[in-house]
Amino acid sequence: MSYKEDQEGEIEALESIYNTDFIVVEDSPFYKFKIRLCASSTDLEFSTDPTCFLIFTYTKKYPEEPPLVDIWAEEDDPFFDDLKKEELKEKLQDEASNNLGMVMIFTLVSIAQEWLAESLDLEKTRIQEERERIRTEAEEAEKRRFMGTPVTVQNFLSWKEKFDAELASMKKVEKEDKDRKLTGRELFLRDKTLIESDLKYLEEGGEAVAVDESLFEDLDNLDLDDIEDLDVDDIED
């Protein structure tokens, strides 16, 4: 049987096997055709199932020579990027070299289907492992949030240094506040017993005196040293 007869006989067989998934692109000078390859990716949550076309072109002496092989897929295919297409193409070329002397397209397509199924299983495993890694990291982060940071000599000394600095700053402010001379208004606001003691004194004298608190509102501007220097006669005037 001649090469031409072998090729035409295989074309008829491929048309009956793959039906609408088989498309002849050219029939002269040699047959060029493509076969659709598709796999379900339900578990991978791809927007569409991975799909490509295996493109074969007979040579003059096929099947004594391997056919030319190429892979085509949509640019937005969720699985068949350039790396995957090149990987599948190399695998088919290697298999073609191992099957010289016999028609081999059905064998090559079957190998491509097996490769696709295995690759999708690997991708599914990779996605599951990635999800598990993210979940584990989130759980560990949540545990650390409740457990706090383990105490070490280094982080304890760092914390103590900051704590001592804050404590010294608070003591400094407190000392400055004590050393500062309080105004009359601040004295009354800080120690309410001063007001109550005066009222008690007046009540013990037999008189109930109504105190107008507004008289004390301007005590902030009152200089007690000036009052001490005043003569009683000046006050009466």
Rank of each mutant, 00 (worst) to 15 (best):
P29Y: 11
E129T: 08
E118H: 10
Q93A: 05
M147A: 09
F163N: 11
F30N: 06
Y58Q: 13
A210W: 05
L219V: 08
F188Q: 05
K84N: 13
E207Y: 15
E130F: 02
E174G: 05
P29F: 06
L222H: 07
Q7E: 00
M170Q: 04
F53C: 10
A208R: 14
S197F: 09
R144P: 01
E174M: 08
K162P: 01
T107M: 12
G206D: 12
E5F: 00
E90C: 12
Q154F: 12
A138N: 05
D49G: 04
E204N: 13
E207T: 15
M102D: 11
V232D: 09
F188M: 11
K85N: 03
D81G: 14
T183I: 04
E161M: 05
L187S: 06
T125R: 15
L44T: 02
G148S: 05
R36N: 05
T149R: 03
K181N: 07
R133C: 01
V24Y: 01
E74L: 01
E139K: 02
T125I: 11
E204R: 13
G148I: 00
D225M: 08
E129Q: 12
D49E: 06
P50N: 07
E217V: 07
A117Q: 15
D179T: 02
D43W: 03
E161Q: 08
D94N: 08
A165D: 05
E5A: 09
T59R: 13
K192W: 06
K192Q: 11
E129M: 10
L92H: 01
I55H: 07
E5K: 07
L83D: 07
S169I: 04
R145P: 01
V24T: 14
E74S: 00
V109Q: 13
E75W: 09
I227S: 02
